[in-house]
Write a protein that binds this DNA or RNA. Structure first.
Lengths: 348, 348
DNA sequence: TTGAAAGCGCTAACAC
DNA sequence: GTGTTAGCGCTTTCAA
């Protein structure tokens, strides 16, 4: 493998200094803390920069400052999942928008073959490719977090990753959304309400919010909570489809389903159609309130999921942690419930 | 803004060299071109690396090598578009998978406020944040490409960006797909076939492929080509929706529509439903053949769009260009047509 | 197969 | 407000 070499020697800060007849440090000052330079000096330097078409070498600055001004967004689930999950894209978008406004670059990293993503996060950080990372929770992440802490490396997690985690996370609490959704369904007369819950394995220390909201609302209404009405799915269309089919097979009197994610919601709708039922026979509550879902199925009520804001807040937090050099208290974002075209329960 | 400083001094290659009782260069060799080191020497070095928990500083290596081992993926359309367009995500995923396997990091950059994305691409490259960029075509890109060429910077474009471009692009030719789709529709008896074309402004030098395939098939069958059956849309749901409505209003005898993208396809389907028509009344051909579309609307035939492969090839090309230090001939990927559940034309 | 020494381009002390 | 100098951590040329 031959290596590409720039044909012309690079224009450096020294060239600019020479042309402007000032010292390198002054050029550096103009480039950075501009207010400490006399106005005419700055003019000369700017003119020289312009004339030479000079561009500061970010790598050299990074080496000296021990700062890459880059954030890593690391996802441990295979790129096929990451780039196809609309919620993750929303989180990524939120992070991108914040960190790029704050003057950081964003490196995105997902394992092409699933394993080792967490090691990749460590590597990126320890090699100084990034100043800090945003991590998506997954099995084994608590161990990696310990490494980060021991080595004093910077991270933020998109959810709670170990017992009693107090710092460096931005999580979403689905309790209010699922509580309100369930309560509303009950008020319409629904008694057999299914819950396509999120997967336990993804979130080890925050897994019961959807279930808790659902359970509270049922209990308040004096309705028995049937464990067989709750199924776990991995957020994907496929599991939404399968779990809905088995749910309806076991509970032919089901009148409503609450889904943990929008892709699962699509699977649920398809399953309902494939069973020869009408979408009006079973009231479906979507899980994320994504724009696309509103367009595809405008009649669907939905639990909201502030993914964009979560990503944004995580970006803000990692930047603050990097700048301040210390851990910061975690943040919990809340969910809501949006009603659209719901009707009283239909007997089948 | 205070600056974060590592509490402990960094472990360097010199520390490893000292512990292993070898020279820094030998450690460097172990880290890189491993085969030029005696086996027992390597063992000692590896042991020292392990013991000191040493991690090479990628920034320092980058400075010395004048290589960041990073690729930029730059999109000039606002992050709201980028992260929500499934095709772009597929392209990004393809690029990610290739470059990360090839040992490069991937920086993704989209303007938070639309303008200046192209300048951002130049900046990233000239500042040495990246060794090269992948650029999405857009208005004004031909000027930026000239800058890249003049300055001998590395780039690949996802489509042809200027007249007579021969190198450094990976484009998709939709002609075969739209030809086959149109021909098949004709064979089923369709005569009034709408085309929701892609937007002219996105692709200045490659804009007629969809139209050409469509036109050829019609002409071969001796069917008059009516310009009013062709509408331009910007790939989004909204334009698919609006253009379909106006198309049907003007052509009540329309029996089929070919869409340039899957999001437009969703808009088309919703428009058809909102007009009180059944999805079986108008044969819809999807534009991208995305997995999600197959799940949502399994009955839809589709033109294929090799977005993932396009991104992957672009990743491969930019890596090769960086390694070889010269431009490389452009690549054109082809489209196909997938038939699913099509029926002879229905009279309305 | 290994080592000594120079230097990539920038910034931070410290002096003036 | 400005300049001098050292050095961030690595790789590379050349010699041994």
């Amino acid at each position: 493998m031959s290596t590409f070499v720039y044909s012309k020697p690079m224009t450096t800060l020294y060239d600019v200094a020479k042309l402007a007849k000032v010292s390198p440090k002054t050029v550096s000052r103009v480039l950075n803390e501009s207010h400490l330079v006399a106005d005419d000096t700055r003019q000369r330097v700017m003119a020289a920069i312009e004339k030479l078409d000079y561009h500061p070498n970010a790598i050299a600055a990074s080496l000296k400052r021990n700062r890459s001004n880059t954030i890593g967004f690391v996802v441990p689930y295979g790129s096929d999942f990451v780039f196809q999950d609309p919620n993750m894209m929303e989180q990524l978008r939120g992070t991108h928008d914040y960190v790029s406004t704050a003057g950081f670059e964003l490196i995105i990293s997902a394992p092409v073959h699933k394993k080792d993503a967490l090691q990749e996060a460590l590597r990126l950080t320890q090699n100084r490719n990034v100043d800090g990372v945003i991590l998506y929770p997954s099995f084994g992440i608590d161990q990696i977090i310990k490494d980060f802490q021991t080595k004093n490396l910077r991270y933020v997690t998109l959810g709670i990753c170990y017992d009693q985690q107090k710092n460096n996370f931005v999580e979403v609490d689905q309790t209010p959304g699922s509580y309100l959704a369930t309560k509303y369904l009950i008020s319409l007369g629904h008694r057999r309400i299914g819950l396509l819950n999120k997967p336990y394995s993804f979130f080890m220390f925050n897994r019961d919010d959807l279930l808790n909201g659902y359970t509270s609302a049922l209990q308040e209404a004096g309705i028995e909570v049937q464990p067989s009405l709750v199924r776990e799915g991995d957020f994907t269309f496929e599991e939404g489809y399968e779990k809905t089919k088995s749910l309806i097979a076991e509970h032919p009197d089901l009148t409503a389903v609450i889904c943990a994610s929008d892709p699962m919601t699509y699977g649920t709708i398809r399953a309902i159609q494939d069973l020869g039922l009408n979408i009006n026979d079973i009231q479906v509550v979507a899980g994320d309130n994504l724009p696309l879902t509103q367009k595809l199925f405008p009649q669907l009520s939905s639990i909201t999921n502030p993914s964009y804001e979560q990503g944004r807040q995580a970006g803000k937090m990692i930047v603050a942690i990097i700048n301040e050099g210390r851990e910061l208290p975690g943040i919990t974002l809340n969910t809501e419930f949006v009603v659209r075209n719901m009707r009283p329960v239909v007997k089948r």
